[in-house]
Design a protein around this nucleic acid. Structure first.
Lengths: 341, 341
DNA sequence: CTGAAAGCGCTTACAG
DNA sequence: CTGAAAGCGCTTACAG
């Protein structure tokens, strides 16, 4: 970029008008303030010179950057790419761009990144890092930064969220296992400080309660995270505590994969000895062995909705805080079957 | 953001100094121009007020945004998330942020997005969309925009690239199959207009040539894309044209998955009837049935290198165009075996 | 309908 | 070491 890019003044000079007139022409909203012939001439010159509005300058004066910050906890977790895609498509359709940052669970790092994003004058934030009680989100709201959380929610009701309806998802999973004849069902719950961990656990319990199973026929084991390793360790421990278990519903496909590992290590087989239900329906879950029965979440739709919501929140800062819950669906494959007679 | 954020002037007023002094303090590089006591006072006030430099303003005057545009062809393709992660980590370490845009193969769309990114004053572009002869890249170079391509390269030598060493990768695959005793090996090549398609094909041919196989014992079939569907169609057609084939090396795990589909549809089995080698080693390729033998590419490392290279190109615009090739490795799993006797 | 001016929040020569 | 000033490229009242 050694030869500097053309500016409004360059186009103005080439068109023989004042640069403020060029500004009006370049903005579709103010274009009709200018006579059609002048507008046409200006547009032609702008095209000829390859004029491109400098967003740093317009951001400075309008205080709107048309950029949204997107903060993800782990882009390599397969649930996030389709969410990100939905966000990006939804934003771009309205002329917005996304700055994407991947951050760990460390609060200091999250604050650092968010401050950098705010310094960049993002118009709003889409956070996939929400905890049920998230001081980072509180900080954003206190500063009047529009925030929407995706996948997870902050339960203080300060920010709109777009999530899967986890209560429905768990009911689908439990009802499927009950219909297959299972009478000892366990749940490997995710971390209690995340809405996904908490709500899926509640959903599991509610589904059991609605059934004819006694509380003692359901078992909940909390796993420390949503990884394959955690899933393996969890199932191993769970089975030692509750050996009569014939079916386990997880809060994540990754955890389900870990269950496969544990089952293999124990010399058991799925679904013959243990049925496993995943959660998310990540790509390729139909190709693994056995193909995974899971709760399909509409990741792309979550992203699209989040984009829509953040833009709405920016447009009307006083619009109410919304909980958008997309309905999941049960995908039955081969990791679930009737328990051994 | 109704209460406007504090500016340099606010901090200056609170500290009793001129705002240009505050500016010097806020920038570590100019901080030593200011007396230690004043600097300390200013820093304290800045912290108290929650001062956050407005990047739109600094971008306007310095003409550097510390933002890099990252353009991806398909973020939901599992090879890109780890690349993106590597890029983002590499950039952030140096104070840079990434704007991520997902674009199709449509050239108009690519140009539109890149122009929007340039208007945003990105300091450089990392493109994962390169074609072997890419007019979009030429356009960027003509405008002196620093560009690095990842995963694929433009072969005109105008932009640095960070790719996997595909010639080595294909040699590893072919040698593995030869060692197993295969004598009729086929390659499902990717699109010729992509460097991955072209170079992997050349690598395959070179590896065959270096062997004792006759050219007639090797067969190349060009697939129209890197998808599971394309892979299935390709293997079906390939086997009808070259039925003696006992092993196929693909240019993508996705294509390999499609091969599995085709093999299943034909009532054959892998690896007994046909050995399959993938390319990339996407996540979960160890969990599918059969676990996929594949060429592992260092995606995260590619991202990290790309970040390093683009920053270097920005810092020294005249630094030479580089081809960075990371070495892949063969991961032997269960989709390859000796051919039937 | 068009122009002239002010100002957004910074950086950075230039004085002192 | 610190201040005063100019200017980055825009938008948008305010005149005419």
């Amino acid at each position: 970029m050694t030869n500097k890019n053309p500016t409004l003044s360059d186009v103005a000079r080439a068109s023989g008008v004042h640069f403020s007139t060029v500004s009006r022409v370049m903005n579709p909203a103010t274009r009709q303030m200018v006579s059609a012939e002048v507008a046409a001439r200006v547009l032609a010159e702008a095209g000829r010179l390859g004029y491109r509005p400098n967003r740093a300058a317009s951001t400075l004066v309008t205080r709107k950057s048309r950029i949204i910050g997107v903060v993800l906890p782990d882009i390599t977790n397969a649930v996030f790419p389709p969410i990100l895609l939905g966000i990006e498509e939804g934003l771009r359709k309205h002329g917005y761009l996304a700055i994407v940052a991947n951050v760990g669970a460390d609060e200091e790092e999250q604050l650092f990144v968010i401050n950098r994003l705010l310094g960049q004058q993002v118009d709003g934030l889409i956070l996939a890092t929400a905890r049920r009680d998230d001081p980072v989100i509180k900080m954003c709201i206190d500063q009047n930064v529009p925030v929407v959380t995706v996948n997870r929610s902050d339960e203080n009701g300060v920010a709109s969220c777009v999530v899967s309806d986890d209560v429905v998802g768990m009911r689908l999973a439990v009802e499927h296992l009950l219909a297959l004849g299972h009478r000892h069902i366990a749940h490997i719950a995710g971390p209690e400080n995340l809405s996904t961990g908490h709500v899926r656990r509640l959903g599991f319990l509610a589904a059991i309660q609605a059934s004819e199973l006694a509380p003692s026929q359901a078992f909940v084991f909390e796993s420390s995270g949503y990884s394959r390793e955690c899933g393996k360790a969890a199932l191993l421990e769970l089975l030692s505590q509750s050996p009569q278990t014939t079916a386990v519903v997880t809060g994540s496909d990754l955890v389900a994969l870990g269950c496969y590992d544990a089952i293999r290590e124990l010399g058991l087989s799925c679904p013959e000895d243990i049925s496993v239900v995943g959660h998310n329906d990540m790509p390729y879950m139909d190709m693994i062995r056995p193909p995974l029965t899971t709760i399909r979440i509409r990741h792309h739709g979550i992203g699209t909705e989040a984009a829509r919501l953040i833009l709405q929140t920016i447009a009307s800062p006083d619009s109410p805080v919304l909980d958008v819950r997309l309905k999941p669906e049960l995908v039955v494959r081969e990791s679930t079957a009737a328990p051994r007679a």
